[in-house]
C-alpha cells in the first residue's frame, strides 16, 4: 500500500541474498522486509543464514588479524625474486654461449637469405602464406576445441612438459606464465610443422574455459622481425598475433577473443620469452 515503485517488483531469490549481504537499496530492503512479514518461515531461514554468516565472519576475522608472516612481505618477495633472477641469468648465460656459437653460423646464411626475400614479402600480407602461422591457426582450431584431450601432457607435469618440448625443439623453452592475465596453463603437445620441423603448442584456459594457444617452432622462411603481426582465419573465427625472433616463430591464437586482449597476451608471451633469453641467442 505504501509501496514505492521499487517495491512493486516481486521479491526474488537474488533480493534475499542481497538482503543477507546488506546490499539492497533502502526502499528495496523495506520491500523485502514487508515480504518477510507475510512469509515468516522464509524470513526465519534468512535470518538464520544472516546470523551464520556473521559467525563465520567472526571466526575468520581471527585469521585475518594474525600478523603476516615475513615470507609474505612484498619487500621480501621482491628481494627473493631478484636473487632468483640473477641465478637464472647465470644459467641462461651458459646456455647462450652455446647457442650463440651455433646461432652465429646460421645467422650469416639466414641474413643473406632474408635480404633477398624481404622486398618480395611485405609484412602486411605475409600472414596467409606463412606456413608457421597457418599451422598455428589450424592447430588451434583442432586442439582447442577438443574437450576430451586438448593436450598431450598436462600442466600437472609442467617440468616434464617443458623438458620434453625443449629437447624436441632443441631449444630451452619455458612455458610463459599468463596467470596474471587470467589464463592458466593446461598443458602442451608436440606437433610436426611444415618441412618436418618439430613444433610445440602450449594451451591456456581462462575461468570461462576460453582457450588460447601459443605455437612455436623454428622458422627461417620469409621475413623476420620481432614486431607483432595480426592474422586471422575469418572462416573459422580464429585470430592470431605472431612474430619471428631470430629464426624462431611464435603465434598466439584464440577464437572469439578481442583483438586488444589477444595483443596483451602476445605482448606478455613475447616479454617473457625475451626476458628468459629463450630462445633468443642475442643475449
Amino acid at each position: 500500500m505504501t509501496a514505492a515503485s521499487s517495491s512493486e517488483v516481486p521479491v526474488g531469490e537474488d533480493d534475499l541474498q542481497a538482503w543477507i549481504d546488506g546490499r539492497l537499496s533502502s526502499s528495496r530492503r523495506d520491500a523485502v522486509e514487508a515480504w518477510f512479514a507475510m512469509n515468516p518461515e522464509v524470513a526465519a531461514r534468512l535470518r538464520s543464514m544472516a546470523s551464520q554468516q556473521e559467525k563465520l565472519r567472526a571466526v575468520l576475522q581471527l585469521k585475518h588479524d594474525e600478523p603476516v608472516p615475513a615470507r609474505l612481505r612484498v619487500a621480501n618477495l621482491v628481494a627473493a625474486r631478484r636473487v632468483a633472477r640473477w641465478q637464472g641469468m647465470r644459467r641462461v648465460a651458459s646456455v647462450c654461449v652455446w647457442l650463440v656459437a651455433g646461432g652465429a653460423m646460421g645467422w650469416v646464411g639466414h641474413a643473406t637469405l632474408s635480404d633477398a626475400t624481404r622486398d618480395r614479402a611485405p609484412t602486411a600480407t605475409a600472414m596467409a602464406t606463412r606456413p608457421m602461422v597457418a599451422e598455428a591457426i589450424a592447430a588451434h582450431r583442432v586442439f582447442a576445441a577438443d574437450l576430451g584431450r586438448p593436450v598431450e601432457v598436462a600442466a600437472a607435469q609442467e617440468a616434464q612438459l617443458v623438458t620434453w618440448l625443449s629437447n624436441r625443439l632443441g631449444r630451452p623453452l619455458a612455458a610463459p606464465d599468463l596467470l596474471p592475465l587470467g589464463y592458466r596453463l593446461i598443458g602442451g603437445r608436440l606437433l610436426a610443422g611444415a618441412g618436418g620441423d618439430p613444433a610445440a603448442q602450449l594451451m591456456y584456459e581462462d575461468a570461462r574455459r576460453l582457450r588460447l594457444t601459443v605455437y612455436l617452432r623454428a622458422d627461417h622462411a620469409g621475413p623476420t622481425g620481432t614486431e607483432f603481426r595480426f592474422s586471422d582465419d575469418p572462416a573459422q573465427g580464429v585470430t592470431a598475433f605472431w612474430w619471428v625472433d631470430r629464426g624462431f616463430g611464435y603465434a598466439v591464437s584464440a577464437e572469439g577473443l578481442d583483438r586488444p586482449v589477444l595483443l596483451s597476451v602476445a605482448e606478455a608471451v613475447h616479454r617473457q620469452v625475451t626476458q628468459r633469453g629463450t630462445p633468443s641467442p642475442s643475449l
Binding site: V74, L77, V78, R81, D177, P180, L181
Partner: peptide
C-alpha cells in the same frame, strides 16, 4: 603474490 609481482 610472486605471480602478482611478476605480472604487476
Amino acid at each position: 603474490l610472486e605471480r602478482a609481482i611478476a605480472g604487476w
